[in-house]
Design a protein around this nucleic acid. Structure first.
Lengths: 284, 284
DNA sequence: CGTTGGCTTGACGAGCTTCAACTACCGTGG
DNA sequence: CCACGGTAGTTGAAGCTCGTCAAGCCAACG
């Protein structure tokens, strides 16, 4: 019953409780980061025309609506095969996979301008679970229409391919982090990566930015437990590397944090068991 | 010096030691799995026309050559920004990322018909490191030409997008494996996944298939150490789940192996710390 | 004012790594 | 022919990282 209610509550037209904006292609004024938004890149966002580009006709995307999702609610569920593609306008969300026994892995944090589950555009894959971290406003496009538009225009299509490849690169980096890096490295890298992404959106001021994540969400993103996240973050704090207060994070010592993130164990025992084999063959 | 030699030795036209086939678009007879090959899907492979499709003109891909790479040699290196896209025709290869201190993560095993670093098609990213596991024969296409052809034909383009998305899904699954699964699960899943992929190529007979991987390669793919891989694989063997002999693997007990791969710790403590928060909000 | 969610801390233990020793299996070269 | 070195794999002992469990604190909230 619970899951059925979940699915239903996010289907457009079925919303009981959300602030449903007018169904016109128009950027909500709250959307401060349209400059980075994929919708803008793709010229889908009528309110945010690209300055350099002088196409007078807007793209023929008929159906698009803005809606608001409260914090911690499901935005899209893998079991529902939605006919909509969602773009985050404001707020944070997570894209995750849940195993039947409760373990879960967050694949990425979605920030304003990010698209939720681009994969859904082409294949009827059962996508990841998307959940709101904070209150989220987002725009939905009809999948078939968006797909038709994107496939029809070559410049947009290249943009799509680039986005797809960028996402893949991020996924690969995540795999390296989870497979081969320690807890300290994972956490410092997570913080620095979020800083970079937020900086691109102009959301970092003097090394301080909003940080609405709960520690169990950080744990799910880094493959650790909430307890261990607390301990490592506590160490970071005691070492005056970072400060977390009132849901915002300040990087006090960027240099040292970076050093931890990129640490190479100089006397690296890890490499010992294969250094020989990796280099020699190509010399013959 | 060593790495410079590496890079050079794989650049087409610079090969000193490989069996360089004629530079005609023609599938080498050794390529037993063209039926699964992306080149065939994309109608690039002149020797393997799709049965249902009756296009008489072949695609205008001018430059394509077949070459042979000995086992354990580098096929493409991230530091070289190659102007070629490679497709594996026969043999196994790895796609991996190496950290400066020697740690390394294998992102995927490339089997016959797989493309090496599709990402290179669009963005000048520094791709992953591709290395031959066994002797490998592969075909290379000129990047710019391939790109032009693919972007120009809508049906091919959709195929490309689908491939990109499938790859991404694999990357996500890898992240879940590395972040949230135990050694037993990772190893059993790796074996089963390889079985599936090989089965699609008709390379599995009575649950037996070629398995040329060294244990340190398995370790790099699963985020473990070679020592631990040996121990777990030893357990699998002692439990009569699998048998590895002469570089080929037999799954003796597929049911039990599958059970390990999908194990859900029934009394799942892992889920305790968040079951409450995950479900309740959407009921309000 | 109790409850709930979030965070911290400490004790303990499991899972995996590290190190080392030993076997086996090549292909090479004396 | 055997010695030799390099690669693979196995096994056991010790140790570290991180997970598990439990207790307690605090703030928000009904």
């Amino acid at each position: 019953l619970a899951s059925a209610a979940q699915v239903r509550s996010t289907a457009p037209g079925m919303l009981r409780n959300s602030a449903y904006a007018d169904a016109v292609v128009q950027c909500p004024s709250a959307c401060s980061s349209c400059s980075n938004c994929l919708a803008r890149e793709l010229s889908l966002c009528a309110a945010a025309k690209k300055p350099g580009v002088d196409r007078d006709q807007d793209l023929p995307v008929a159906w698009s609506s803005v809606q608001t999702i409260p914090a911690r609610r499901t935005i899209s569920h893998p079991s529902e095969w939605s006919e909509f593609i969602t773009i985050i306008c404001s707020g944070w969300a997570t894209s995750s996979v849940a195993l039947p026994d409760g373990r879960r892995q967050i694949l990425s944090f979605l920030l304003p301008g990010d698209i939720a589950s681009f994969a859904g555009l082409f294949e009827p894959v059962s996508g990841p679970l998307v959940e709101a971290v904070t209150d989220v406003t987002c725009r939905t496009f009809k999948r078939e229409e968006l797909r038709a538009v994107l496939l029809g225009r070559r410049d947009l299509l290249e943009k799509v391919a680039e986005t797809l490849i960028e996402e893949r690169k991020q996924a690969d980096e995540l795999a390296v982090d989870l497979g081969r890096r320690t807890a300290d490295e994972r956490l410092s890298r997570l913080i620095l990566k979020l800083r970079e992404r937020l900086a691109k959106r102009g959301m970092v001021h003097e090394e301080t930015f909003e940080f609405p994540l709960r520690q169990w969400q950080i744990a799910d993103a880094t493959g650790l437990t909430p307890v261990h996240v607390s301990k490592v973050l506590g160490e970071f704090h005691r070492a005056n590397l970072i400060e977390i207060k009132d849901r915002s994070l300040t990087i006090l010592n960027p240099v040292e944090l970076r050093r931890i993130a990129d640490r190479c164990r100089i006397n690296g025992h890890l490499s010992a068991h294969r250094t020989g084999s990796a280099n020699i063959p190509n010399l013959t």
